[in-house]
Each structure stands twice: as structure tokens, then as C-alpha cells.
Design a binder for these strands. Structure first.
Length: 419
DNA sequence: TCTGGGGTCCTAGGACCC
DNA sequence: TCTGGGGTCCTAGGACCC
């Protein structure tokens, strides 16, 4: 079993990461923002977090995921801008178009980053560095946006090196140099190592990736299980375990669809809460229909004032796409689990366990569901024309208990859209 | 500091079946 | 009576990512 677990040739993976994506897109629409401290995600007093901050704002310690109110204190002169998901999606599609001309094996990992498998494209695009510079220039020419490109023999190396290349740079880690490149970096730089894992590692005296690489692999496995083993591989630059191990461009279908809403003011008003559940159920149902998914499991998410959060799920025998069925389930879960009178901060509805198309419903049931689907499709078209609030399961009810909360337009930063 | 919204993956316990 | 071992499904929670 001795010899080669080595691949016969090394892969060449690119990771393309757009620089301060949301901020840069906003600058395209309003050039006066250029060079200023800009925070995208909402207004300075909103209950929300920073989606993106300009490099100017970052100098004051502002970073994404930070509460907007904190950002406003750290950087009072910053300009606060609401997010525009449609703009980001549109630019993201242009990015996808550009990278698609470089390799057949491409994959958008999120709205603003992509992987390309460039193995074997030398005859077409030249050596990695040259190809990367061409890509970098073409990206700027066709999207007017800056990006950074990391090149390596694994997704992990490509990802970490694109981060090191920022802003607006290209970095190639030559095959064989992976471990040496990673060694001086903080363990937190490894994708998948967050706050909690970082703390655990620090307690073991592990600060840098080099420390991690020297650590006994079996002890990592004993302490952290499967993940510990993967971690040992990552310290060497390997795509060990999980999503990283998959081929670039492999077809990934969505596993869940969800919508949630945080109130600007916590509420214990049953009518308002159930009106929100209707709206969220409709949004989830609509997306199920768009993707032609049927969901077997519906989950309620409930967050109280003090941030304690529960989730309660239920699976039905026959999968569904229907707003009414989703809402009935979720309302049932809500009534059973909400501690009456305790103010609620957030409600969420999630659908999962998908099938594409139902298998064995009898004919009557099928026609009944078809009628519903037709009606709902008509409603979807109406919404496209007149906006989200024009049609609803209970638009009358909603009309009288319209929420005062505003939609956070910065909301959308999802990883994947189901096809 | 007072914490969005949309996702993925992992773990762990209990039910249920063979 | 008192007790096994494995597999799969379901549910709840949590870490992590952008």
C-alpha cells in the first residue's frame, strides 16, 4: 500500500474574489462614493449588520457582520447605503460570463467569488500567471470591477492565496510550496476555522498553520473527530473533507430554501406574528414553484428578545409546493411552541428534503393540486408586475396589520441559487 | 458592540426496523 | 425474562461562510 497517493499531475485551481464587491457595485451607480468611507447594509441606526465596508471604512475597524450601530460609532463620517440585491445579482452574472470564457469547469461559490479548474488550459491561455493576468484585465474591462486571483493546486490554496493577494492582485503558489506558504498564517485564515475552533486551537498552543502542521494528527482526530483529521490535511494545503473535496463545477442542487424576518421592534402581537408567517410561507412556496421542488420538511425558526433561538420541524408524508400547506404546518408549530406573550425578535420558515415532482398522488388529488398551482402561478405573475404586496393568501388580514418594519434590501447574500 | 439573511455541513439522541 | 447490534430516518442545535 506504500507508493503513490500522489496524483500524477497537479491541478491548477483559480479562485477569483471580487474586491469589496457590494461597495464597488454601489460606486458604479454613484461615483461620488469613490474613495470615501462607505458602509453597505442599511442606515446607521438600523437593527442590522454591515454587509460590506469600503477599504476606507475598514481603516476605522469597520468590517462585515458588525452591527450597523457599532460601525456608526467607530466611523461616524461613513456614508451608510442600503443594499441592492438585484444590482449584485446582475453584476455577478457578468462576472460569471467573464470567467466562463476561461474554463469549462467553473463554479460560483457565492455571489462574489468563483473557482475555475484551469488544469490543462495552458495551450489556450498560457501558463497560470499569464492566464490570471489576462482574466484580471478582462474582468476589469467588462465589469469595471476589481478582483483578486489566487492560484494553487487545491481549492484551499487558491482561496487562501486570493485573500493574500487583496486588493486587486494576483498570487500564484507554485506546486510544492503549499505548506511553506501556509505556515506563517494564523489558523483563522483556514476556511472553516471560525471563532470557536480558533479558541480551541489556541488553547492547545496552536497559533499559526505551521504549528497545526506539526501537531500530532491522531490527537487532532481524538479531540475534534472527523473535522480534526480534515484540519490536519488543510494545514498541508489539501482539500480534505467536505465541500472542498468536490470537483469544480460539479452540479450542486439546493438542499433548503428559507426566508426569515427580524422585526425592527420585537412584538408579541399574534396577528402580526401570524401575518409574518403567511408572508414568509408565500415567499418560500413561490421559490419552491420556481425551482420545481417539492418539500417534505417544513421548519419554523423563532428567536426571542434575548436572542434565544429555537427551531421546530415537521415532515409530511407527501411533499408540497403549496403556500397553504406550508403555512398550516408552520402555524401549528408556532402555536405549539411560542411562549405566549413573550416578545419575538425573529421568525423564519424553511423548506427542505426536496423531491422534484410528486410520485404517487391519486388523480383527484393531482387535479386539485394542479388547480392550486395554476392559481398560484397567476398570483406569481401578478406579483412580478405589481410587487410583493399585491396578492396574498390573506391580503386583507395583512392589509390591516401591515408591518411597520421595512424590508432590509441588503438581505441577500446567499451562497447558491437553486436551478 | 448588541447582534441580517440565506445557505451548508456536522453531531447526537431517539424511534423504529430487522 | 432482560437484552444485541446495525442501519436509517427524524429532529434540534451549533459552527461556519459570504
Amino acid at each position: 500500500m506504500a507508493a503513490s497517493c500522489q496524483p500524477t499531475y497537479a491541478r491548477t485551481i483559480f479562485h477569483v474574489d471580487m474586491d469589496a464587491f457590494f461597495v464597488s457595485v454601489e460606486e458604479l451607480f454613484d461615483p461620488s462614493l469613490k474613495g470615501k468611507a462607505v458602509v453597505v447594509g442599511g442606515q446607521r441606526n438600523d437593527r442590522g449588520v454591515v454587509s460590506a465596508a469600503s477599504y476606507e471604512a475598514r481603516k476605522f475597524g469597520v468590517h462585515s457582520a458588525m452591527p450597523l450601530r457599532t460601525a456608526a460609532k467607530m466611523c461616524p463620517h461613513a456614508l451608510f447605503v442600503d443594499g441592492h440585491p438585484e444590482r449584485y445579482r446582475e453584476c455577478s452574472e457578468r462576472v460569471y460570463h467573464v470567467i466562463g470564457t476561461f474554463s469549462p469547469q467553473v463554479e460560483m461559490a457565492s455571489i462574489d467569488e468563483a473557482y475555475l479548474d484551469m488544469t490543462g488550459t495552458e495551450r489556450l491561455h498560457g501558463p497560470p500567471l499569464k492566464a490570471a493576468h489576462t482574466l484580471h484585465e478582462r474582468m476589469k474591462a467588462e465589469t469595471r470591477l476589481n478582483c483578486s486571483v489566487g492560484i494553487g493546486t487545491s481549492r484551499l490554496i487558491a482561496k487562501v492565496s486570493s485573500a493574500q493577494a487583496k486588493p486587486n492582485g494576483v498570487l500564484w503558489i507554485v506546486p510544492g510550496e503549499e505548506a511553506r506558504f501556509l505556515a506563517p498564517l494564523e489558523v483563522r485564515e483556514i476556511p472553516g476555522v471560525g471563532k470557536v475552533m480558533e479558541k480551541h486551537l489556541h488553547e492547545l498552543g496552536i497559533q499559526k498553520v505551521g504549528d497545526l502542521a506539526r501537531f500530532e494528527e491522531s490527537e487532532l482526530e481524538d479531540r475534534f473527530g472527523k473535522w480534526g483529521l480534515a484540519l490536519a490535511g488543510k494545514a498541508r494545503g489539501e482539500d480534505a473533507g467536505g465541500w472542498f473535496d468536490s470537483e469544480v463545477g460539479a452540479d450542486i442542487t439546493a438542499k433548503s430554501i428559507s426566508h426569515e424576518h427580524t422585526y425592527n421592534d420585537d412584538t408579541a402581537d399574534v396577528l402580526q406574528l401570524e401575518a409574518t408567517l403567511i408572508r414568509l410561507s408565500e415567499m418560500v412556496g413561490r421559490r419552491l414553484r420556481e425551482s420545481n421542488f417539492y418539500a417534505r420538511t417544513i421548519q419554523l425558526k423563532l428567536r426571542y428578545k434575548d436572542f434565544t433561538t429555537i427551531t421546530r420541524a415537521h415532515s409530511f408524508p407527501v411533499p408540497t409546493q403549496l403556500d397553504t400547506e406550508i403555512f398550516e404546518q408552520v402555524r401549528g408549530l408556532f402555536r405549539k411552541n411560542w411562549k405566549k406573550g413573550i416578545p419575538v425578535r425573529l421568525l423564519g420558515v424553511q423548506a427542505s428534503s426536496f423531491t422534484t415532482g410528486t410520485n404517487q398522488i391519486d388523480l383527484l388529488e393531482a387535479t386539485r393540486q394542479q388547480r392550486w398551482k395554476d392559481a398560484l402561478a397567476a398570483a406569481d405573475r401578478l406579483r412580478d408586475k405589481f410587487g410583493e404586496s399585491s396578492v396574498g393568501l390573506a391580503s386583507g388580514l395583512r392589509g390591516s396589520f401591515r408591518e411597520r418594519t421595512h424590508e432590509n434590501p441588503a438581505g441577500l447574500r446567499g451562497r447558491k441559487k437553486p436551478k
